[in-house]
Amino acid sequence: MLRKSVYSLAAVLAGLSAALGGVAQAHAGTDTQHRCVTDAKLVPSCDVLWGAAAGGFTGKPRDEELKTWERLSGRTSTIFHTYHKGDDVFPTAAEKAMTGDPAHPRVLLTNWRVDWDSTWANVAAGRLDRRIDTFAARAKAYGKKFFLVLNHEPEDDVRPRAGSGMTAKDFRASFRHVIQRLRADGVTNAVSVVAYMGNEKWMAQSWWKDLYPGDDVVDWIGLDSYVSAERNYYHNGLFGDLVDRRAPGGEGFYDWATRNHPAKPVMLAEWGVYHRVGQVVDKSAQFNSVLPALAQRPAIKAIVYFDTKKDAFGDRDISINSSARSLASFRKLAANPLFNVQVR
């Protein structure tokens, strides 16, 4: 009886050893191979792309600010977010260097205000085609795939009066014209993103539904949204609240995007956690809520942090290191393997 028990125990241990060996081998495989990779539209096969725009409203070089931010956060940003308007040279030498660094692979996410010094209606009518064609030539010469946002946060620029040239329908027509013109010019490396503010104030407007350019010209649906760490302050909440804001009686942004455009990946093209300048509040609760919220919202395939010590109005601190505890929580988030996506 004892010998039988010994043999049975030995068999169990042998089986357990084999199982653990198999698990170890599987993990060794995922450690040496990139499990999650991007496709032709930069959509990851699994997990979530990680990115940032750093040094906002400082006037400092965005590339140097991002490198500093990467060291601070503990992770290289797969997405490097930059901003252009009108006839700005694209891509800049810095953008080429940042996205051509073999030691730190990055992909460009650039916002372009094609209508700068003009109107959406003029863009749609073809009056800025020379500007578009110049951009197209530069984009083709650049060669690498990149995300292209056209006039992010259009809600804030809408002038609903007929004939203003800046109605929601004018934006839609402008976006469509630019993407179609770029394609006609032979641009194949631009991945289009329409990036909303997603504020409940704007979502309640009758014209909000007219902004969407159409599934045929939109590759990703983006959102620029922020949340406050201060209790009883504007938009206090957790990460999920960034994408779930809704007009009274309406549906949240994430639900709207996934119900109406289920084939489109969702990107937080800008996100951040703020408190008032000089009113330091620990942001750990917000940073700790990111992973659970993403698990519940699988259509979100990219998140891009916007880091600045002062916003456009000078009164909100959106930095990850406004307190030591906030930074520690953010570094823990940044270290998560969910963001180990390889761009190809």
Rank of each mutant, 00 (worst) to 15 (best):
A295T: 14
F339R: 02
A94D: 15
D88V: 01
D315F: 14
W112P: 00
G59W: 09
L327H: 04
T99R: 01
S323Q: 08
V280L: 12
K4V: 13
Q25W: 13
D216K: 04
Q296H: 08
G237C: 07
M98H: 01
T188A: 15
D170L: 11
M98E: 14
G100W: 09
G59D: 06
A137S: 13
A10C: 14
R259Q: 14
A125L: 06
V6M: 12
N321Q: 09
A54K: 04
D133P: 00
A299M: 09
V277G: 07
G314P: 06
P337C: 06
L66Q: 14
W220I: 12
N260W: 04
L268S: 07
R183H: 15
P298H: 10
G21I: 13
P154M: 03
A204Y: 08
A263S: 15
Q286G: 11
S45M: 09
G237M: 01
T258A: 05
Y233V: 13
H235E: 12
V12T: 11
V12P: 00
K4S: 13
G237P: 09
Y254V: 12
K264S: 06
S225E: 08
R130S: 13
W256E: 12
G143Y: 08
R113L: 00
A124P: 05
V158E: 07
L108Q: 12
V178S: 08
N340S: 12
G100Y: 11
F253S: 07
T167V: 10
P292M: 07
P213C: 04
R35S: 05
L182H: 11
D63S: 15
G29S: 11
S8V: 15
V114S: 02
W208R: 10
F90N: 03
Q296S: 15
L66W: 06
S17T: 15
G214N: 07
G143N: 02
Q286S: 14
S225Q: 14
S322Q: 09
G100D: 04
E155D: 12
I179P: 05
Y212R: 00
G74F: 13
